[in-house]
């Protein structure tokens, strides 16, 4: 059965869109990845124009992340205090990211920088997480005690305005999550994605947050980021297709429920391996895209 998308101006299979949403939602609930870097390309693959795919994807992620946040909130996995600071950092990066991209474009090397940043970041984070998680799993299997995940970095503990984050069981300077989110936000702005797949590893390895709380807090932050992006895209570019977004959101909310349930059934190391595999697969695909001639040399300039 097909449905007509009024803003995209095309018909699409109902089953196909809901399935796409379900897959992305499952990953979102499982590992806290917003799905932006998966959803937009998949929607483009099924024939949705890039501008519509990016904007409607953001709207769909509002549904996914609200469902995921709700589950994680009930399970006690959302650190509201830390999430609030991350949001403020996100607002700060918005302006900075735009200026950096302008500067890079003026230098004529924006696309080169963006692509290499993407590949290097994804590749290094993915590889590090994969190896580290595998080692943790092995240690667990051999009966060795894994190092305690909540260990304070000495350098970070010397910074001013230290604050307790009881939900995450960490103590940090307010500046650490603020600057971290701003930096991740700039990278995400350069790379044109939500940044969840960078944010979660950063929270786990740099802020020493438990994986489950990192996932829940990241979803909380994504909810607001995507809501803002949807509103701006609808107002400025008129590229949000609410029918497409709701279909994807329907699939993804169900998927997010299943994913969020699975979080408690898997160990932190196992979750990290899943996320690392997704990140590495994306890095490999991007690297291949760099060297293989595209089917069409022209691509429509979109809003995201």
């Amino acid at each position: 059965m097909d449905l007509y998308l009024p803003v995209a101006g095309m018909s699409i299979s109902l089953f196909l869109v809901v399935s796409v949403g379900g897959l992305v939602g499952f990953l979102s609930g499982l590992v806290g990845v917003g799905g932006g870097f998966l959803l937009t390309p998949i929607l483009m693959m099924v024939g949705v124009p890039p501008t519509i795919a990016a904007a409607s994807g953001a709207c769909a992620l509002v549904g996914t992340s609200s469902s995921g946040t709700s589950v994680h909130f009930r399970l006690g996995n959302v650190d509201l205090r830390l999430g609030g600071i991350l949001l403020m950092g996100g607002l700060a990066e918005a302006a900075l990211g735009v200026h950096i991209i302008k500067l890079l474009r003026a230098m004529g090397s924006a696309d080169l920088v963006i692509t290499f940043t993407y590949v290097v970041m994804l590749g290094s984070i993915g590889a590090f997480m994969f190896v580290e998680s595998l080692q943790s799993l092995r240690r667990g299997m051999l009966g060795h005690k894994a190092p305690h995940p909540v260990q304070q970095n000495r350098l970070l503990s010397k910074l001013p305005f230290q604050m307790n984050f009881p939900r995450s069981n960490v103590r940090h300077s307010v500046f650490v999550p603020f600057i971290l989110c701003a930096l991740v936000g700039v990278l995400a702005a350069i790379m044109g994605v939500g940044g969840g797949f960078i944010m979660v590893p950063m929270m786990v390895y740099l802020l020493r947050m438990p994986m489950h709380v990192a996932v829940g807090t990241d979803l909380f932050q994504i909810l607001f980021t995507c809501a803002g992006a949807t509103l701006m895209q609808a107002a400025t570019n008129q590229t949000v297709d609410v029918v497409l977004a709701l279909l994807v959101a329907f699939g993804s909310t169900v998927g997010a429920q299943v994913g969020a349930r699975m979080v408690r059934l898997l160990r932190g190391e196992q979750l990290r391996i899943v996320l690392a595999s997704i990140v590495l697969a994306t890095a490999v695909k991007m690297t291949l895209d760099l060297f293989i001639e595209p089917a069409s040399l022209l691509s429509s300039i979109g809003g995201n």
């Binding site: 008129q238 169900v254 997010a256």
Partner: peptide
């Protein structure tokens, strides 16, 4: 979407949020 984009965008966000929370509930 073309004549009242702010209302349309706000409505889209609200509906998506509601859909998410309702599914969870």
């Amino acid at each position: 979407a073309s004549n009242r984009p702010w209302a349309y965008g706000g409505g889209a966000v609200l509906v998506a949020m509601l859909a998410g929370f309702l599914t969870d509930a």
